[in-house]
Every structure is written in structure tokens, then in C-alpha cells.
Write a protein that binds this DNA or RNA. Structure first.
Lengths: 163, 163
DNA sequence: GCTTTGCGTTTGCAATTGCAAGCACTCTGG
DNA sequence: CCAGAGTGCTTGCAATTGCAAACGCAAAGC
């Protein structure tokens, strides 16, 4: 497992660089790395860190993600059409907020499913085993409290006694 | 301006790990890295390579992209409101649920922003053109009622971020 | 008490990254 | 033919990554 797909990332970089018709030293300067190192990267002799990769992407004016996917560092473009996936990918939320949001969403799904089964008899039997089946524990209610209170510090206790 | 906050990636990982209620050794095993190294990463003493970062993301069951963005390795030019798009596109939600979920999400965004700005004091609250500045009105709390299986005490405290 | 189990952390050490300096080659042009 | 400038490539070497082993600490278990 020495060189899994390191070669492909190097080939990809070289391809992009030649397509842009710039030399190694030019790209190296633009990316802020040394030319010999870039040479080794392009031939798969070195496995560049994410930081370097990101700078190279900038120097090539291509998407960092494209490079990461090529490097096998991102599975594949995860479809953001899914609500849970989108919530998980959102960096503007705290971990606690994320978890609360996901649980609320799943509770909504469950609630809606129950309603649908009451009105129409054929229901989708999508059984997600993502999280627990229980209703929201009280700690999430505590997290929701800032809605009712004033703006400002929503305070959430994360302590758990049960073990 | 190499990296705004290298430590933030470690804090983010630790946050996510504690959110998932797993130990360092568990996550380390799941991610295929050593526990001491994970410890150093979480405290910002080491700068993990993209490969390690990707494995940690897998071990945490979170999006690799989220982690890369936190690490400052991907520009955050991704549409930050993918969550809203996903919610709107979800056919398994009722219209009311959809609206509530979106409002909660936006409140979380606002809350988080306030928290982040509280740390750095020179911050103005600029009001969005989208919705008001108020927290969620009580009608949304009513919508959240199904969660209230057990009415817990409201005491909540922000997670400890002591060194 | 005192051993075990689990937690996060600290400590050397092999392996790797990433670079400065230099190498080999080709093309221009004097 | 020999400078000069362009290309990509090889070579030591400091700095860093990432890990195995060991540490200190707290909570059970005997």
C-alpha cells in the first residue's frame, strides 16, 4: 500500500499544468512550492500534503476538490441533495447544532410518515437506521431553549451521567 | 496568512468526536491512526496530512469536505446554504416542517455567528435581508412540541473549552 | 489495600516531507 | 564552438509526520 493512487494525482497535475502551458518553475512559484518538489509530485515520487495540494490547485486555478478527488482524498462528490449530508457538510454549524438539527429532521420524517400512514394507506417504508428511533432526548430540548429565550448565549450542557 | 487557525481543525475534530461519544482510541482505531497522534492533532500540535484527515473524517462519519474546510484546505466557496436547498428538495417533509426546519437552521447560523463574534469583540451584528433578527417565535416551539416527550430542566451550559 | 481497565498525554525514533543547491539536456545567437 | 537562458531531474539535509512504548490519572473489581 505504498503508492495507492499517488501516480494519478501527479499525472493529473502535470496534465493540468501542460494544458495551461506553464513550466514547472512557474507553477511552483505560483503555488509557493519548490520546483524539484513539484517534479517529484508530478511523477508520483512524493505524496504531497493537503496544504501543498491546495496551493497547487490555487496555482493551477482549478478546484481544490477536483484535485482531492483525483488524489483519492475525497470519496467522490457526495450528493448534497440529502438533508443529513448537507447538514453534516455545513461548517457554519457547531457540532451540537448539527446533531440537534439532524435529530429534528429525523423526528420530522418520522412524524410525517405517521401522518401519511393515517391519511393514505400505502406508505413508504423507508426504514432509516441512521440514528436512534427514540424521540429527542431532553438534552436536545435544552439545546433548543435559546429559541424561546432572548438572543445571545445559548447554553447547552453536554454532561452525561448515564454510562 | 497561511492558516487562520490551525488549532481549529483539532478543536473541530475533538468536538465531533465528543459529540459522537467515542474515545480517542476508538476514533483512532476507526480512522486507522495511532491514539497519541490523534491526541496531538486534536490539540493542534501536529498538522495532519490530507490522507489522515480523510481517514479521520471517515471514522467520524462526517463529510471529508467539512473537515478540509475547517482545516482551511478547501475554499469555503461551496454554497453554504446547501442545507436549505436540501430541505426544500426533500419530499418527505410537510410544508410546515420544511419551514420550521429552515427557520431553526437559520437561527442556528445566527446563534453560531454571534458566538463566534463574541470571542472576537470587534464585531458588528449585520442584519440579514432574509428574515428578522428575532429568535424563533413561540409558534415554532409549538411545532417542536412532539419532541417534548420528557420535559427536561432547562439548565444548559456551553461546552467547556478550557485548555 | 492493590490490581485491572480505560482515558488522554508524553517521549524517543524511523520514515517522510519539502527545500536549496546543483546536474543534464535543449534551444537560441554571438 | 561556447555563453546564456530555458526546461525537467537528482542529491543531500533540516524539519516534520506518524507511531510504538511508556506514563500519570481516575474509576471500577477483587
Amino acid at each position: 500500500m505504498a503508492l495507492p493512487k499517488v501516480g494519478s494525482i501527479g499525472e493529473y497535475i502535470r496534465e493540468q499544468r501542460q494544458q495551461a502551458k506553464i513550466s514547472m518553475r512557474q507553477l511552483a512559484a505560483a503555488a509557493g512550492v519548490s520546483n524539484p518538489y513539484l517534479s517529484q509530485i508530478e511523477r508520483g515520487l512524493r505524496k504531497p500534503s493537503a496544504e501543498i495540494l491546495n496551493q497547487i490547485a490555487k496555482g493551477l486555478h482549478i478546484s481544490s476538490q477536483a484535485l482531492y478527488v483525483q488524489a483519492g482524498l475525497i470519496e467522490d462528490r457526495e450528493p448534497p441533495s440529502d438533508v443529513i449530508t448537507a447538514i453534516r457538510a455545513d461548517t457554519h454549524l457547531s457540532g451540537r447544532q448539527r446533531q440537534v438539527l439532524i435529530d429534528i429532521y429525523e423526528s420530522f420524517r418520522k412524524e410525517k410518515r405517521a401522518e401519511d400512514e393515517q391519511t393514505s394507506q400505502n406508505a413508504h417504508l423507508r426504514h432509516d437506521s441512521e440514528s436512534g428511533d427514540e424521540p429527542l432526548p431532553e438534552e436536545y430540548l435544552a439545546a433548543l431553549e435559546p429559541f424561546a429565550a432572548s438572543t445571545g448565549n445559548g447554553t447547552a450542557n453536554q454532561e452525561t451521567k448515564e454510562g
